[in-house]
């Protein structure tokens, strides 16, 4: 084995060690707990007054029966739950076409003194399930496209 090969083999082992350490640090190190993309309603409630005025992402499920949408003013209100706590959310603007009861949402905004979450950005997350329409059911493609721009008649 030439000295050059010995040198690059040491490089290989060192690079592998660095990569492995970096991966391990993120996988099992404390980084996981410090990296929070969104809070659930329970965490938001626990934060109490600290949540007021701070920019926060709140994630959870839309509680069925709580969606109220005014097509004229595009004022939208609904409640988000993680199964334990509920937080009322208000936003202005057209929700994405996937928005519906029971779906996961992530809203960006802040908690207000009045006790509701004022959302400035609404994102809909979908699960990892992909299903064909049920027997005899037809997906109304034109309605989906129409609703993307004018959700007045969406659901």
């Amino acid at each position: 084995m030439s000295t050059e090969t010995r040198r690059t083999r040491i490089f290989a082992v060192a690079a592998l060690a660095i990569a492995g350490a970096a991966f391990a640090l993120i996988a099992v190190g404390g980084l996981g707990e410090n990296l929070v993309y969104y809070w659930g309603p329970t965490e938001l409630r626990e934060a109490g007054d600290r949540a007021i005025g701070a920019t926060i992402r709140l994630g959870g499920q839309v509680v069925p029966g709580t969606i109220q949408f005014d097509p004229k003013t595009t004022h939208l209100s609904f409640e988000v739950t993680d199964g334990r706590e509920r937080v009322p959310v208000r936003s202005v603007g057209v929700p994405p076409q996937m928005f519906r009861e029971g779906i996961g949402v992530i809203v960006e905004g802040t908690m207000t003194r009045e006790g509701h979450f004022a959302s400035e950005r609404l994102m809909v997350s979908h699960g990892n399930e992909y299903r064909a329409p049920k027997e005899g059911e037809r997906v109304d493609v034109e309605a989906l496209i129409r609703n993307a721009d004018s959700p007045a008649e969406a659901r």
Partner: peptide, 18 residues
């Protein structure tokens, strides 16, 4: 590992066979 907007990996069980 983290809460994410992106969904977790699908499996053949979560995707319609067609």
């Amino acid at each position: 590992w983290w809460n994410s907007l992106h969904q977790v990996q699908s499996t053949p069980q979560t995707v319609d066979s067609a």
